[in-house]
Design a protein around this nucleic acid. Structure first.
Length: 415
RNA sequence: GGAGAGGUGUCCGAGUGGUUGAUGGUGCCGCUCUCGAAAAGCGGUCCCCGAUUAUAUCGGGGCGUGGGUUCGAAUCCCACCCUCUCCGCCA
């Protein structure tokens, strides 16, 4: 959420930022509600002040007191209404891109900032992962559909083990080498958590929701991690905090119906290892660089060629002020696969979730900055491993970094 | 799920209708004392909203959450949430 004071004082800048995002937030309406709200609060406060004075005289001024009560109640109702309207609109507004973010109309304006190694050349036609997976008997699409419907699949044998190995490998790397604390959070959260991290109210149609208990299934560990310190005031010494969490992720993917239906690239349920940071405002940009490098290192250790792409204004996520994607080359499906998206959300989520810190002993609390990035998304890194390490005979060589976890050097049929 | 108890400031713990941000203790910061430390004494120490020459000042709100009663509520009423104990159930 944006600071209403910032919007009030920089309306033109906000308007431009919103336009660059191809968003159509009603700035004028927001400014109008804000000014009306403040005016009514002024009135309400002076009424309350009078009530305070009058009530001290006990029985003497009961008549005026009764009048005041009615007026105050009416004014409270007005302010409540305006608060709600204003908040509803503010909650729909995206974060403001940082000034260094390339302005663009769509994803074609994203900028490749660096690449690591060249895509591997094959002297045979590399197969897509769904073919490899089915032939090896490690991915079962048909039974996934039988059990749960479209966009569900089953990993079996070495396929399940490969995913588990990747999870262990990534968690171990980030905790041992990059200083993240491992967290196992709930996969279902309260509505206010969804609001806190920015999924609600705007993206309700992409979230699974248990109506009976009003719990929401997380589409990313970013959600519970954002809310880990909700309504807390952290000490300056507590920052930065690095967290890494493995979770399942659930997404309805209604918006992308018919897209990427083949394979395991986009399912309703997938696993992810997520990196998350709480930092001081001045440090968040350098922390984003570090976080991105931490995620990249997974690709490097797996020896998978990748590129890092900076999002342009129009392609950025709702909560992000700046973000990088890590894209790995998948030779079988012949595309750059987004295995991670690393974002600096500045104080956008912190304001929603009310996560603050005290900059100094006597200083006022201030919102922290939050950052998140996949480190990495399992199905897509699985695709990359399978397609990059495939052999002419359809077997898959296990990357060196995973051999201790997999306890094998190659995945063969019935392996 | 059933029965009971309870939710107050960093924490502990008072307060059951009237200047109560809220007794007391504790923690934290500063000062005094001291060669220094401890002890002791004194002072300070919450958050939000609004007004402003804007962290100095003024006003309002906040005692689990949201409503209500009243001239006036931490204190009374209603609903909900959470914690603890016992019972039931269960990986």
């Amino acid at each position: 959420m944006l600071d209403i004071r910032f919007v009030r004082e920089n309306p033109e800048m906000v308007r431009e930022a919103v336009a660059n995002r191809n968003d159509n937030a009603p700035i004028d309406e927001i400014l109008r509600l804000d000014s009306e709200r403040r005016q009514k609060i002024g009135r309400l406060d002076s009424l309350r002040q009078e009530r305070k004075t009058v009530s001290r005289e006990r029985e003497k001024a009961q008549e005026r007191g009764r009048q005041l009560r009615t007026e105050i109640q009416e004014m409270e109702e007005e302010v409540r209404r305006l608060d709600a309207q204003l908040e509803a609109l503010l909650l729909q507004m995206p974060n403001i891109p940082q000034s260094t973010v390339p302005v663009g109309k769509d994803e074609s304006h994203n900028v490749v900032v660096r690449t690591w190694k060249e895509p591997k050349k094959f002297d045979f036609t590399p197969a897509p992962h769904w073919k490899l997976g089915e032939d090896l008997g490690i991915i079962d699409f048909d039974r996934g559909v039988k059990i749960s419907g479209s966009r569900f699949y089953i990993l079996g044998g070495a396929g399940a083990r490969l995913q588990r190995s990747l999870i262990y490998f990534m968690l171990d790397m980030h905790t041992r080498e990059h200083g993240y604390q491992e967290i196992y959070p709930p996969f279902m959260v309260k509505q206010e958590c969804m609001v806190g991290s920015g999924q609600l109210p705007k993206f309700a149609d992409n979230i699974y929701h248990d109506v009976e208990d009003d719990l929401w299934f997380v589409g990313t560990a970013e959600i519970p991690l954002t809310n880990l310190h909700r309504d807390e005031i952290l000490n300056k010494e507590d920052l930065p905090r690095y967290y890494v969490a493995y979770t399942a992720c659930f997404r309805r993917e209604k918006m992308s119906a018919g897209k990427d239906t083949r394979g395991i690239k986009r399912g309703h349920q997938f696993d992810k290892v997520e990196l998350y940071k709480f930092t001081e405002p001045e440090k968040s940009n350098e922390e984003l660089e570090k976080l991105t490098r931490d995620a990249e290192e997974v690709c490097q250790k797996l020896d998978l060629p990748y590129r890092v792409v900076e999002h342009c204004t129009a392609d950025m996520g709702f909560a992000a002020a700046r973000s990088y994607d890590i894209e790995v080359w998948a030779p079988g499906i012949a595309e750059w696969l987004e295995v991670s998206s690393c974002s600096n959300c500045t104080d956008f989520q912190a304001r929603r979730a009310n996560v603050r810190y005290r900059p100094g002993p006597e200083a006022r609390p201030q919102y922290v900055h939050t950052l998140n990035g996949s480190g990495l998304a399992l199905p897509r890194i699985m695709i990359a491993v399978m397609e990059n390490y495939q052999q002419p005979d359809g077997s898959i060589t296990v990357p060196g970094a995973l051999r201790d976890y997999m306890r094998t050097k190659v995945i063969k049929p019935d392996g």
